[in-house]
Amino acid sequence: MDANRTLTPVLDLRHLRLELDGRSILDDVSLAVREGEHLAIVGPNGAGKTCLLKCVNRILRGWRGMISVNGVSIAAFSQRELGRLVAYVPQVGGRLTPFTARETVLMARYPHLTPFAAPGLRDQRYAEDALALTGIGALADRSLDTLSGGERQKVYLAAALAQDARLLLLDEPATFLDPRHRDDFRRVLRTVNRRKGVTVVEVTHDLNCAVLDADRIFALKDGRAAFCGPPEQFMVREVMHRVFDRAFLTVNHPTTGQPVILPEVGGP
């Protein structure tokens, strides 16, 4: 990685605080994500992981502190400009809509369209590429309410890719997917991250996928940063116990030899 790219983080959070209904959700969170990095955000339920993502794309407002994308505070962008820089894949379980997969993906070209214009040939090419990359070209004309959860999640990934942003935020994108769909999903993420240099910030509960796929792990607990560092340093019993209040152990995979995280039998 050359020196220039490391100078300005793609995403920079400084002293981020968020309160909802008088309850503190995020408390003094700072985090810098380098361009081309794959960051996994882990932590117990209710730690503020989803809210952190939603602050970045301005779904949630009213936070304090600073959030900047490519070195510019996100307050300086219009929503449309921000949409060209940051794309988002929400949690599984979105609404069933009668739009087809292709329409859904094409609609994600919105921030690139001039006012009132319909998507053009260029936008259609982006949509077809994204459909092909995620392997759902054959489902393109099916409406979303006829697709399975895993297929639908791939459509939302394809849409986020068609949005052509350099920063991709994903909120537990693969939590409810079967092993095959999950691995498809991870493969696509790896491709866009490694080959296209798209920065990936992924909230996940799958610790083993996180340590395998991510360059860095960021752990949140009760709205505060509890750990930030490379996967090897995260896979330490004390660290994981501190984050999750639960005992884990690591064993080596019988065929690959890679360390695998297991919950310790008998609870905490």
């Binding site: 939603k54 794309n57 301005r58 779904i59 219009s78 929503q79 449309r80 400009e81 921000l82 949409g83 060209r84 940051v86 794309a87 988002y88 929400p90 979105g94 609404r95 809509t97 739009f99 859904t104 609609m107 994600a108 919105y110 921030p111 369209l113 319909a118 949005q163 935020l169």
Partner: peptide, 19 residues
């Protein structure tokens, strides 16, 4: 276009760049 995106999901519409 805004109505299309908002009819699917408001948060998703925001993330796509709809004010």
């Amino acid at each position: 276009r805004e109505l299309n995106l908002m009819s699917v999901d408001e948060e998703l519409a925001v993330s796509r760049g709809v004010d």
